[in-house]
Simulated scan of single mutants.
Amino acid sequence: MSDENATAAPDERIKVRSKFREALIRPELGGICGTILVFVFFLLTAADSGMFSSQGVMNWTIVSAQFAIIAVGACLLMIAGEFDLSVGSMIGFAGMLIAIMSITLQLPVWIAILVTFIVCVAIGALSGYIVVRTGLPSFIVTLAFLFILRGFTIFLPQLIERKTIIGGIRDAAEGDWLASVFGGKIFQGLFTWLGENGLISTFERGTKAGQPVVDGIPMLIVWALVLIVFGHILLTKTRFGNWIFAAGGDAQAASYVGVPVNRVKILMFMFTAFCATVFATCQVMEFGSAGADRGLLKEFEAIIAVVIGGALLTGGYGSIIGAALGALIFGVVQQGLFFAGVESSLFRVFLGLILLFAVILNTYIRRMITGER
Results as ranks from 00 to 15, higher is better:
143 L>C: 06
4 E>I: 03
303 I>S: 02
255 S>L: 01
247 A>D: 07
1 M>F: 13
366 R>M: 02
194 L>K: 12
151 G>I: 03
180 S>R: 06
289 S>D: 01
207 T>G: 00
2 S>R: 13
6 A>R: 15
60 W>A: 00
250 D>F: 07
356 L>D: 03
95 G>K: 08
365 I>W: 02
62 I>D: 00
43 L>A: 03
163 K>M: 00
272 T>L: 01
181 V>W: 06
100 I>H: 00
219 M>P: 00
329 I>W: 13
42 F>K: 10
43 L>N: 13
84 D>Q: 07
232 H>M: 03
11 D>M: 01
236 T>N: 14
267 L>P: 03
261 V>N: 06
356 L>Q: 07
111 I>H: 10
291 G>T: 13
316 G>W: 09
353 L>C: 10
244 I>K: 12
13 R>G: 11
142 T>E: 00
184 G>P: 01
84 D>Y: 07
197 N>M: 11
246 A>P: 05
176 D>I: 10
340 A>S: 14
93 F>V: 06
296 L>I: 08
324 A>C: 04
325 L>W: 10
182 F>V: 02
85 L>V: 09
29 L>G: 04
164 T>F: 00
333 V>L: 02
303 I>E: 10
30 G>K: 06
18 S>L: 02
288 G>H: 09
15 K>P: 04
311 A>G: 06
364 Y>G: 01
317 Y>Q: 06
120 C>N: 12
149 L>Q: 03
138 S>A: 06
53 S>R: 14
25 I>Q: 12
86 S>Y: 03
145 F>I: 04
172 A>W: 10
338 F>K: 15
111 I>A: 14
113 I>K: 12
19 K>M: 08
289 S>P: 05
204 E>M: 11
339 F>G: 03
263 R>Y: 02
309 G>S: 05
56 G>L: 02
